[in-house]
Amino acid sequence: MSDTGGHDAGHDHDHTPPPDSSEGLGHYNVMEIAVRELLIDKGILEPGQIRAAVEAMDSRSPEGGAKVVAKAWVDSEFKARLLDDGTAACASLGIEMGPTRLAVVEDTSEVHNVLVCTLCSCYPRMLLGLPPDWYKSREYRSRVVREPRTVLREFGTELPDDVTLRVHDSTAELRYLVLPMRPTGTEGMSESELAALVTRDCMIGVTLPGVPA
């Protein structure tokens, strides 16, 4: 454990919990604590409400998105609604997008889609849960927009040269979900069996859904 300096002078820290990170609390950690304590002190929120909101955020997972994709694969009418108004189509399955709006981008034999937020880490959390660390990394955010095919190759995804690669930079109000192509060889599968093929990464667009063994 390294001591990063400034904390060895023996001054009193009684009121402050020991930091979880050896580097101490960063600017935004301190800001989060300050805002949270103010909201509670002013009676705007109860601690339990904050806890419940965090729990709800943590409980979302890519299963929500997979359910949407599988339904679109088996129900062409739902798919048309999903592409036209992703927010409303998801709401009809009980998945609420909250304050954001959903745009679903469809892969075809001519076009492959991949998602990024170059400015921060906007992500369809309602459908996929918390983003993976790599999605938030500066490396992914800067490189996938500049050399997307190289980045996809590093994820094990080789796109044919005649397929157009479309990067979607989620810079503002919309959130995106990639609707991958249904793999061949899945004709007899049920909706729930199909959903099991749909992974987080293929809904971001860095991989393709697996073909069942």
């Binding site: 095919r149 479309r166 979607h168 930079d169």
Partner: peptide, 29 residues
């Protein structure tokens, strides 16, 4: 008003040497 605007990657980056038809869509006010 907010728009999704589509850019040809070859217009955005010098020496973009991936797919000639590749694009990047950006939301812009």
């Amino acid at each position: 008003a907010l728009y999704r605007v589509r850019f040809a990657q070859s217009d955005v980056w010098q020496n973009y040497d991936d797919g000639a038809a590749d694009t990047v869509d950006v939301e812009l006010y």
